[in-house]
Write a protein that binds this DNA or RNA. Structure first.
Length: 921
DNA sequence: TATCCGACATAAA
DNA sequence: TTTATGTCGGATA
């Protein structure tokens, strides 16, 4: 269950008459416990309460008590040994009139009337496995409002199916946004009289709901009509009490969907919520799921958390503003300058969603401004920061609408906070009629016309091939000569997961080069921003998948940015961007800030600690702006080539488990010549056994004579034919064989393909010709002990971890990126002999610990001394070849390797080995 | 709930 | 034709 569903269930429970016997179970059920769990608790099997209540292990101890005994009961629950023994996180006591609960870890308590306990549902969300970071609790209102709006939305679509069609979606979205505005306005006295909107509808529309839409339509019309025009338009007296709002919000059609009785009741109920508690940054992200069928399941789950957004905004420009504020101290002149500067700053989010980056940036700037005004003794001063300087582009209609509203609400809330309710109301209406959030495809729109740089002598590129003429361009910016900061969290989408349209978006941005095909969709924003930045110098920072700073994409993206003289000026290294949903695995992200500033302090953030450096490389490490490019064969001539293992693409039918193999062989001993060992990463590391059918063309007939083998071959054919990939369908012609084959009948080295973050060594191993290396490993034919030594070295691992692609937070080893690029001088015969001996010693040390698996041996806890010594020796011999001694640290290692790599690539002959064509300038 | 890596679509050469 | 890379994850412990 998601947070919104839980909120609904809890509210429904509170509305039912109180049933003491049933309450604990109903409560647990509302938090998403399964029927079977409840049944077991009911039967007492898993209920360990010693107070006649219900105690769910690791969760909660609930007791229903006699009237008036709530506080006493809660204390008893806390003191109960069973509570401690079952490690309950919460205690809860109620008599149906009062309600008290405590979170035992923190000692935080809730005490309220029973009917009000749903107000505190956020308190209990850990029961549903939803981690309550502080923020989730604070957004209880937002979750509830989302839930109610969602109900209304669904109900309205039921009665007005045409409003759900693509043609009317915009009207529907616009209507919902208008409602939200009205709910907010009537609670905050923007409409004079609390509850004016809801009350008017309740009073003026028939109870049978037949004319609800007309009443609402009249109200909307009134809010779009200036006072002086109202008589001529014929606004009825009851609608005349509403102020003129306009601001694009109420202009256009006032058409309103029809309301059923249920929808009308929902509407009135929503109006009774306390909308002053809305958090525009959070609510926006939540509510946007309402309008998207495929996202509704995750309602209330999706929002970008505030601390993460600040990871972008603070280093981008807020830190600097705050530093200037501190510097200005109480100097009125300096404070004034800062305020004037801020009034001209534009924040531009070309993937703004429901506007949370913009809202948070706006709020942060207002906070700084308020401090300036306080120090200057102008606390009541009207803000100098124009809301229209917070610009956005959003593809989806509803979030774009919500974003604008969220900013309006944020402005009002800031005015109330810093200037007072009365002053806030004074200046609020009518709203500015400008539309400063553009709905459209950010990768196709011309950013220069949406956010035109002014006062910098830049000519608008309105004739840009891909630009779309927009009236937004006509809006005057109040930021003559001001700075622009671009930020956001654009959508990530891997190269193999993009739609045709998305591919085309990238294709246009790459101006005829084809390497866009391997880029994540998010790369488009970097390219687009870099083009914008070259005309006006705007710094930009985006949240992105960590793969833009790893592996093959590094060359595609950063070669282009460096060509434009742009540099990384801050970076957050890979971190997990978690939503509040516990079942959401989270995404591995980086944040990269780019500007045209070549020198000066730069910052790398890791685990929230900042490190100051002179230069940040494209792998987000300190050092030069060097990146490697995929190479088809080694740049170092002493290394043999490494290739990918054999890929089955068989739907699992050519692959045999140990049991499969035994069964097959006992039934058909003659199959033995058709079977080989299959070796992937797991088999190398954990020594597990898998086998495969390895059938040569001359054996096909013999193989098909075995029914089980024939069945498998037939199944391979079927599954390949059904594939969406053209190449795979092609392999349906050879169903008895692996799709990709490189197997040779000689011994080889198998190299694991995935490595976890903590591994201290790569663990290649030696195999005979009876083993087929699968595509989950790499292979070198024939066996080569020098290569074995180098791959096993920590020097090579450091290099690999830096330049190879990632796998989540781990490493995905790569022949072309990590191994073929690995730089090493020409080796003497003695070097080779030394390294070979080191490799042999590693193998011998492993053998001495037989039968322990590699995974076990290389666990830092277990690494035996002899094996450790063998690796140490190997590292030492190799490093001496580079610099005559051991490196001092990894920084020195990488420095040397990149330096050598650059040299080797520049040397004649090396260019021919490069895999991909140079990017034209 | 933290860890671990399998299988294959789809790219380039 | 051949052979790579990466996966806003899921299985599994």
């Amino acid at each position: 269950m998601n947070a919104v569903e839980i909120e609904e269930a809890i509210s429904a429970l509170a509305e039912r008459p109180f049933d003491g016997g049933e309450f604990p179970f109903a409560f647990l059920q509302a938090f998403g416990n399964k029927e079977t769990t409840i049944k077991k608790l009911r039967a007492g099997a898993s209920n360990s309460s010693d107070l006649g209540g219900v105690l769910q292990r690791n969760h909660i101890h609930i007791a229903v008590c006699a009237p008036g005994a709530v506080t006493k009961t809660l204390a008893a629950l806390k003191a109960s040994p069973a509570t401690a023994k079952a490690k309950a996180r919460f205690t809860l006591a109620t008599d149906g009139a009062d309600f008290e609960a405590e979170e035992l870890d923190t000692g935080e308590t809730v005490a309220c009337a029973y009917a009000d306990f749903p107000d505190h549902f956020g308190f209990f969300l850990p029961l549903a496995g939803i981690t309550t970071v502080k923020q989730v609790r604070e957004s209880s209102f937002d979750i509830r409002a989302t839930s109610r709006m969602n109900r209304l939305y669904v109900e309205l679509l039921k009665d007005n199916p045409d409003w759900g069609t693509a043609a009317r979606r915009h009207d529907m979205n616009h209507f919902m946004v208008r409602l939200i505005f009205c709910f907010f306005a009537e609670r905050t006295d923007i409409f004079h009289g609390i509850g004016l909107f809801t009350d008017t509808i309740a009073r003026m529309s028939a109870k049978d709901s037949s004319d609800t839409h007309k009443v609402i339509g009249e109200l909307f019309l009134s809010m779009n009509t200036k006072r002086e025009d109202r008589a001529s338009v014929g606004i009825p007296r009851w609608a005349d009490a509403f102020p003129y709002v306009n601001g694009e919000l109420f202009s256009g059609s006032v058409d309103t969907p029809r309301f059923s009785k249920i929808a009308r009741a929902y509407l009135l109920h929503i109006g009774s919520l306390d909308w002053t508690k809305i958090n525009p940054d959070i609510f926006g992200s939540m509510i946007q799921a309402v309008a998207e069928d495929e996202e509704r399941g995750a309602l209330g789950m999706h929002y970008t958390s505030v601390p993460n957004i600040l990871k972008v905004l603070n280093p981008l420009f807020l830190d600097d503003l705050r530093a200037r504020l501190a510097e200005a101290d109480d100097n009125p002149r300096k404070l004034l300058n800062l305020r004037n500067r801020m009034a001209k700053i534009r924040v531009f989010d070309p993937a703004c969603g429901s506007g949370n980056f913009l809202v948070i940036a706006y709020k942060a700037m207002r906070e700084i401004e308020a401090e300036i005004n306080r120090r200057r003794g102008e606390a009541d001063r009207r803000t100098d920061i124009p809301l229209t300087n917070f610009r956005g582009i959003e593809l989806r209609d509803f979030p774009a609408e919500v974003a604008r509203l969220a900013l309006i609400i944020a402005e009002f809330q800031c005015d109330v906070l810093y200037r007072g309710q009365k002053e806030a109301l004074q200046d609020f209406l009518p709203l500015d009629a400008q539309n400063w959030i553009t709905c459209g495809n950010a990768l196709r729109l011309d950013w220069l016309s949406i956010c035109p740089p002014t006062g910098t002598g830049v000519k608008l590129q309105a004739d840009d091939l891909f630009s779309t003429p927009l009236d937004q361009a006509q809006i005057d910016f109040e930021n003559q000569g001001g700075e622009t900061y671009i930020c956001g969290n654009p959508q990530f989408k891997g190269a193999r997961k993009q739609s045709r349209d998305q591919k085309n978006d990238l294709s246009l941005l790459f101006h005829g080069n084809i390497d866009y095909k391997d880029c994540d969709y998010v790369v488009g924003w970097f390219i687009k921003a870099s083009e914008y930045s070259t005309t006006c110098g705007a710094p930009f920072a985006f949240v992105a998948t960590n793969s833009i700073a790893q592996g093959e994409q590094v060359a595609h993206l950063w070669s282009r940015l460096y060509a434009k003289n742009l540099h990384i000026f801050f970076a957050h290294r890979t971190f997990l961007w978690r939503n509040n949903a516990s079942n959401n695995a989270g995404v591995h992200c980086v944040i990269v800030g780019v500007s045209n500033r070549a020198s000066g302090a730069k910052f790398i953030y890791e685990a929230d600690t900042a490190r100051e450096v002179n230069c940040i490389g494209p792998y987000l490490i300190p050092g030069d702006e060097i990146f490697v490019e995929a190479a088809d064969s080694p740049v170092s001539s002493d290394l043999p080539r490494m290739i990918s293992g054999n890929m089955a693409r068989d739907g699992g039918n050519l692959i045999l488990s140990r049991d499969d193999t035994e069964a097959l062989l006992s039934a058909h001993p003659q199959a033995v010549s058709l079977i080989k060992k299959l070796v992937g990463t797991k088999e190398i590391n954990q020594g597990s056994k898998r086998y495969c059918l390895w059938i040569t063309d001359k054996d096909v007939q013999r193989a098909k004579d075995i029914p089980e083998v024939a069945r498998r071959i037939e199944q391979v054919k079927k599954e390949r034919t059904a594939s969406t990939a053209k190449t795979t369908r092609g392999y349906a012609n050879i169903p008895h064989k692996f799709a990709q084959r490189c197997h040779r009948d000689e011994s080889c080295i198998g190299i694991p393909k995935t490595i976890t973050g903590n591994d201290a060594y790569l663990t290649p191993d030696v195999f005979g010709s009876d083993a087929v290396i699968s595509d989950l490993a790499f292979v070198i034919y024939p066996m080569d002990m020098v290569a074995f030594s180098i791959i096993s070295s920590s020097l090579h691992l450091i290099w690999s971890k830096t330049v190879a692609g990632g796998m989540r937070d781990g490493l995905r080893y790569s022949s072309q990126l990590a191994y073929h690029t690995f730089p090493i001088h020409r080796l003497t015969e003695k070097n080779k002999a030394d390294l070979s001996r080191c490799a042999e010693n590693i193998l011998l040390a492993r053998e001495a610990n037989f039968p322990a698996t590699i995974a076990y041996l290389y666990d830092p806890e277990n690494l035996p001394d002899d094996l450790r010594a063998a690796h140490e020796r190997n590292d030492e011999v190799l490093e001496r070849i580079y610099i005559g001694r051991r490196f001092r640290n990894d920084t020195e290692r990488l420095e040397k390797l990149f330096e050598l790599y650059t040299k080797m690539i520049a040397s004649p002959g090396a260019a021919a080995k490069k895999k991909k064509t140079e990017v034209s300038a």
